[in-house]
């Protein structure tokens, strides 16, 4: 993925998530959703480092991961609209997404629920002798689940090709990482299991891409798992309708100064990799892409309610 494509992907995610928040406010979509505004560089930097055969598991905050991995915005939006053209024909919704054909194994809406699943993907790869690496996104909240520790131990013991990527956005719902983690650095958990680890600035696209590429190489070469912590900030609320009473607006204003897209644009301009006109055109293109996605979703048929109980078993 070249740098301009990375930029375009981050914009697509940002516009998608802004649209999701707006569509909720307007009552055009229902249920729930967790947006990832401010965290786009983690999703896109990671996707840029992955190889096509690699597998990814995600979190409840997974729209960005999925779009960066190659999801069509229209089909993803259609899933949020509960339409037959959605990725899971309306059976999944925002928190449950999967498209195995692009190596995206999504999430199940349970915090930390996909962590052992990712290790299973890595175990399958090892048993078959493929060059696939499984990359497991999880958050600072999931780091407090027991299964995270168990799974690190298991993956290290069996030297499995898996990269655990902690997207530390500072908040488990309303609980700050400082109130839920006894030790602030999730990456340090690697030490006791003898796993390689690194921490990086999750709002720096180039840093994410490089660190993830190194972690994937490590796992692919048979050196076992890698634990990577990307520190970012969830500019969005936890989910729809979150009034964010648990944090000060000053804190958010300061965080907006560090948001990844403007930062990457400054880099592109300074390096003369893009002109103002290029960036403006890409902003317009991203906006149009999301408008098309909404139109596609809204015009799509509802799933057939008569078949609701079908497909529980093969």
């Amino acid at each position: 993925m070249d740098l301009l494509t990375c930029h375009e992907q981050m914009l697509t995610i940002r516009r998608f998530e802004e649209a999701v928040e707006r569509l909720f406010r307007e009552g055009r979509i229902g249920g729930t959703a967790h947006t990832c505004i401010g965290q786009e560089a983690v999703a896109v930097g990671t996707a840029a480092a992955l190889q096509p055969q690699d597998a990814v598991t995600s979190t409840h905050r997974g729209h960005g991961h999925f779009l960066a991995r190659g999801a069509e915005p229209g089909r993803l939006m259609a899933e949020l609209f509960g339409r037959a053209t959605g990725y899971l024909r309306g059976r999944g919704g925002s928190q449950m997404m999967m498209d195995a054909s692009i190596g995206f194994y999504g999430a199940n809406g349970i915090t930390g629920g996909s962590i052992p699943f990712a290790v299973g993907l890595a175990l399958d790869a090892k048993l078959r002798g493929t060059k696939r690496v499984a990359l497991c996104f999880f958050g600072d909240g999931a780091a407090s689940q027991g299964v995270f520790h168990e799974t690190l131990n298991l993956a290290a013991l069996w030297k499995l090709p898996v990269v655990f990527l902690c997207e530390n956005n500072g908040y488990a719902m309303s609980t700050t990482a400082s109130r839920s983690l006894a030790h602030p650095h999730v990456a340090d958990r690697a030490t006791v299991y003898g796993i390689a680890s690194a921490q990086t600035d999750g709002n720096d696209l180039l840093a994410v891409r490089q660190t993830v590429a190194d972690a994937l190489d490590h796992a692919r070469c048979g050196h076992g798992p890698f634990l990577l912590e990307c520190r970012t900030y969830r500019l969005s609320g936890h989910s729809r309708g979150d009034p964010r009473e648990y944090r000060a607006r000053d804190e958010e204003t300061a965080a907006w100064q560090r948001e990844p897209i403007a930062r990457f644009e400054a880099y592109l301009l300074a390096q003369k990799l893009a002109t103002d006109a290029d960036l403006t055109a890409r902003h317009a293109a991203a906006k149009a892409r999301i408008e098309q996605a909404i139109q596609f979703a809204e015009e799509s048929p509802l799933p057939d309610a008569a078949s609701v109980a079908q497909g529980v078993f093969a």
Binding site: A55, T57, A100, Y105, G113, I115, P116, F117, A118, V119, G120, L121, A122, L123, D124, A125, L127, R128, A134, G146, V147, E150, T151, N153, L154
Partner: peptide, 16 residues
Amino acid sequence: EPAFVGAAIGAAAAGS
């Protein structure tokens, strides 16, 4: 149990 049952599910989904 959560780790190895979860891993089995992932491996099964991948074709094992």
